[in-house]
């Protein structure tokens, strides 16, 4: 009897673990042939940042294309271990998905290995501009965000809003999308008001919420009154800003973070991957499986600045921000760091 209980409990545990590991699925109805997409993401679809931006775009594309009968997608989230992600990518390709998206630049090396084994499957990979086409791989798309553009606009807003003339940055690791965004921000601040002091902390992790909070507190203690940050861990920094009761402001990126702290968030740069997804899907339907690098920008609408219309001091920043957006779109402002 006790042996039975032991095995039963072990099985139950195993079932729980499996249940926890498998991502959600959206099954298409029978009949017809939907376009099938699988995506592998490093963090959670509700991270208010990188992974959520892709998830939201896929949901949007599904609506545009007429629901799950026409566009089916599955996802594996929290694939922070690259080995696990590689296994998932290979598995999805073997299952015959039309497009397999590896949403994380850290998956690049694995994708380069896997893609040639599935020449009739299209892959997409971001954020990066590397399609591996020069290495003979023909079925990988690359996509990235010109996050420096929204960074620049956020920098202009921060410069207009700061009273202490000190602004703070909470970053994860000084590479890739985070680096681009932060350098765009710094340029925006400097070109608006060179006298402003910019403080910067990298926590070394995309996941360490506690450290992000301490970084924000350190900035605030040093006198910063407008903070920005990028990475999933910034929710800790936003909590710290929120506790200051309106004395310190936050400007977001990647997803709309306003509902986290509606009274202190000025605006957010929002990534809308629908722009590149539409293009990739159209090309895949025409049997072009890769070899191109695509970019979301303010100009093509893949990047948007979403203002928090309820924020009390928005008037001090919005006109300058809108001018900066126009300048970047028509080329009079160069937001490249």
């Amino acid at each position: 009897m006790s042996r039975f209980i032991k095995w039963f409990s072990l099985l139950a545990l195993l079932a729980l673990m499996l249940g926890a590991c498998t991502g959600g699925q959206q099954q298409a109805a029978e009949g017809g042939k939907p376009f099938r997409v699988a995506v592998v993401m490093p963090s959670s679809i509700s991270d208010l940042a990188f992974s959520q931006s892709m998830y939201d775009a896929l949901v949007g594309i599904q609506q545009e294309m007429g629901g799950p009968e026409k566009f089916e997608f599955v996802y594996s989230e929290n694939m922070f271990k690259v080995d696990d992600a590689a296994a998932a990518i290979r598995d999805y390709a073997a299952q015959g998905y039309d497009l397999v998206i590896a949403h994380g630049s850290q998956y690049g090396t694995s994708l380069r290995e896997i893609a040639p084994n599935f020449p009739n499957t299209a892959f997409a990979h971001g954020t990066t501009n590397r399609t591996f086409v020069e290495e003979g791989v023909k079925n990988v798309y690359a996509y990235e965000a010109a996050s420096n553009e929204g960074g620049y606009v956020n920098g202009v807003m921060a410069a207009k809003l700061t009273k202490s003339k000190i602004v703070g940055i909470v970053g994860p690791i000084d590479v890739g999308d985070a680096k681009l965004y932060i350098e765009g921000f710094e340029k925006g601040v400097r070109e608006t008001d060179p006298s402003i002091q910019i403080l910067k902390v990298f926590t070394g992790s995309f996941g360490d919420v506690a450290l992000a909070r301490e970084a924000a507190d350190a900035h605030i203690a040093a006198g910063a009154d407008v903070l920005i940050g990028t990475g999933q861990m910034v929710v800790g920094a936003i909590a710290a800003v929120s506790e200051q009761g309106g004395k310190v402001l936050w400007i977001g990126t990647q997803s709309n973070q306003t509902k986290l702290a509606p009274e202190v968030i000025v605006a957010n740069q929002v990534y809308d991957w629908k722009v590149v997804l539409r293009e990739i899907i159209a090309k895949v339907k025409n049997k072009q499986f890769g070899g191109e690098s695509l970019l979301i920008t303010l100009k093509n609408g893949g990047l948007r600045i979403e203002f928090n219309e309820n924020f009390s001091r928005l008037g001090e920043a919005k006109p300058a921000a809108e001018a900066a957006i126009q300048g970047i779109i028509n080329g009079t402002i160069n937001a490249v760091p």
Binding site: V209, M233, V235, G236, A239, E243
Partner: peptide
């Protein structure tokens, strides 16, 4: 102590190796 005292936030995998 992390979620309701130091941070007042919960995020998946927030302990990050602690």
């Amino acid at each position: 102590a992390l979620s309701i005292a130091n941070l007042n936030v919960f995020q998946e995998n927030m302990t990050a190796g602690m």
